[in-house]
């Protein structure tokens, strides 16, 4: 029992530094905080490209977090903040690409490939069905059974 308590305390102690790394940011309303948390997940840190703003320790990510927080407090809507980031860093900064332009390949490519695959699959299945040998009729089956029975006897 004592061992378990000790182990859980150690786990809690280990998890504290991670939470303490970033100064806690304050907001006027919970809604603002929710928007902030959500936006940090949605944008990429360009310095360490496979991390989002929430997960990155790079100085640039810190600056962008600060900028997003300030804009939320100023009352800018999501679209305005999105435009701000995309105007500076391009579409690459977003983790969910905009629908339109060259991004259509990203959005529609999988659907088109799926349709092509389905059409190919169905047409191949049809073809192999057409080629399949027909079922033997009842008479041949009876004959075959009789022949097999003879052999066994």
């Amino acid at each position: 029992m004592r061992m378990i308590i000790f182990a859980s305390l150690a786990l809690v102690a280990l998890s504290l530094p991670a939470a303490a790394a970033e100064p806690i940011v304050s907001f006027d309303t919970d809604f603002q905080r929710e928007r902030y948390d959500r936006m940090l997940e949605e944008y990429r840190c360009l310095k360490c490209q496979n991390q989002n703003l929430a997960g990155s320790n790079a100085a640039l990510a810190g600056d962008l977090r600060r900028e997003i927080r300030e804009q939320i407090l100023e009352g800018n809507d999501d679209k305005a903040i999105d435009d701000y980031l995309v105007a500076r860093y391009g579409d690459f900064v977003r983790y969910s690409p905009r629908f339109g332009g060259a991004n259509l390949v990203l959005w529609l490519g999988p659907v088109i490939l799926l349709v092509v695959g389905l059409v190919a699959g169905v047409s191949m299945a049809r073809r192999s069905q057409a080629r399949r040998t027909p079922m033997p009729d009842q008479a041949s089956i009876t004959t075959a059974r009789a022949l097999l029975a003879d052999k066994d006897a």
Binding site: K47, A59, L60, D63, E67, R88, G90
Partner: peptide, 13 residues
């Protein structure tokens, strides 16, 4: 010092 101008120019490295 604060990196504000850099932010406007989209500096990331």
């Amino acid at each position: 010092v604060a990196g504000d101008v850099g932010l406007d120019y989209g500096v990331y490295g």
